[in-house]
């Protein structure tokens, strides 16, 4: 079977969930060969093997952390040349998309980004995308070169599929462009202890209706009672009430949880772009005309400061 290169997103050896989802998709179109770079790369091998990686190519060098993106492109290109895969898959993270974009230019191959499903087809993998703020679904394929495809989180289930996961050192020689953009400093984001926004089964988001940073604990309390991640609209982020990393929408994160709860969010097209594919949608808004109500499975017209705390209490009571 043809080999499929899978780029591994990990933090110091801890593999992030979207990469495991990629392995599920990769197995549909071939045999996954993982490329794991940077500090802790070797520690990713056992997890990757459990989820279907037949081989894990690893490389570590200071360049991966000290310079932006290009050293990783050099490494993935080396892996591409060593393996001659039938496709190369990346997570649709900012960095994943940038590496993919540059690789596509280098190897003269078509690129499809932000895929939500992937299947084998007669003329190569068929990619499903959700476009125009999720109003349309398209099916596309790469018609020239080796398909380079980036996949959104939550696009496939994580499946156990034990494979050899043989670790092999990848030889990388960096191009003179590799050191072009220096990473002068890096401040890791502090963990909130809550689930990752894009990976969470439930997301509770607050918007302008929350009225201030000091009121966000109302949203957080509901999220915590449900074990949910916290999201925010751009209006709430721009006002400085909640960090940009929590923004849901076109210029924030795309989420597709089992349950999305919107509190004090009107439902502008750019917000919908980031949450419209959620399985169940619930909203609390005091304006009965708010467009968010067009999307909901259940909506409450009312003041979020009344409804949300009551809901939180009720959830706690029911959970016991």
């Amino acid at each position: 079977m043809a080999e499929v290169l899978v780029y591994v997103d990990h933090v110091d050896g801890a593999v992030r969930k979207p990469t495991l989802e990629l392995l599920t998709l990769a197995r549909r179109i071939g045999e996954p060969v993982a490329v794991s770079l940077g500090s802790g790369a070797e520690n990713t091998a056992s997890t990757l093997a459990e989820h279907g990686a037949v081989k894990v190519l690893t490389a570590d060098a200071p360049e991966f952390a000290d310079y932006l993106v290009v050293p990783k492109v050099d490494a993935v290109q080396a892996a591409y040349e060593a393996v001659s895969p039938s496709a190369v898959l990346f997570p649709s993270s900012a960095e994943g998309k940038e590496i993919a974009a540059r690789l596509a230019v280098r190897i003269g191959s078509g690129i499809i980004t932000d895929v939500v499903d992937l299947e084998a087809g007669d003329e190569g993998p068929v990619a499903t995308q959700s476009v125009f703020a999720a109003a349309f679904t398209t099916k596309s394929r790469v018609s020239k070169g080796t398909p380079v495809i980036t996949v959104k989180p939550n696009s496939a289930a994580v499946e156990a599929a034990p494979a050899a996961g043989e670790v092999e050192a990848l030889e990388v020689s960096f191009s003179d462009k590799a050191t072009g953009t220096k990473v002068v400093s890096r401040t890791p984001r502090e963990s909130t202890g809550r689930p990752e926004l894009t990976e969470a089964a439930i997301v509770v988001s607050g918007g302008r209706g929350v009225g201030g940073a000091e009121n966000f604990p109302v949203v957080e309390a509901l999220a915590d009672s449900l074990g949910a991640a916290v999201g925010a609209s751009r209006a709430a982020v721009d006002a400085g009430w909640y960090p940009h990393t929590n923004q849901v929408g076109q210029t924030g994160k795309t989420v597709s949880p089992q349950l999305y709860i919107a509190a004090g969010i009107s439902g502008a097209i750019q917000h919908r772009a980031g949450m419209q594919t959620s399985k169940t949608i619930v909203a609390v808004n005091k304006d009965a005309e708010a467009p968010i109500f067009d999307l909901v499975d259940y909506g409450v017209v009312g003041d979020l400061f009344e409804v949300v705390p009551q809901l939180t209490e009720e959830v706690k009571t029911r959970k016991g």
Partner: peptide, 29 residues
């Protein structure tokens, strides 16, 4: 380098239940 083979409009979400909070909205939810 890429080809789009099909585009389908996402079916509109089926209309949900909308209630007005009369003091029990949180519990109903």
């Amino acid at each position: 380098w890429t080809a789009v083979d099909g585009a389908t409009e996402r079916p509109a979400r089926t209309a949900g239940t909308i209630v007005k909070d009369e003091g029990e909205g949180g519990k109903q939810l």
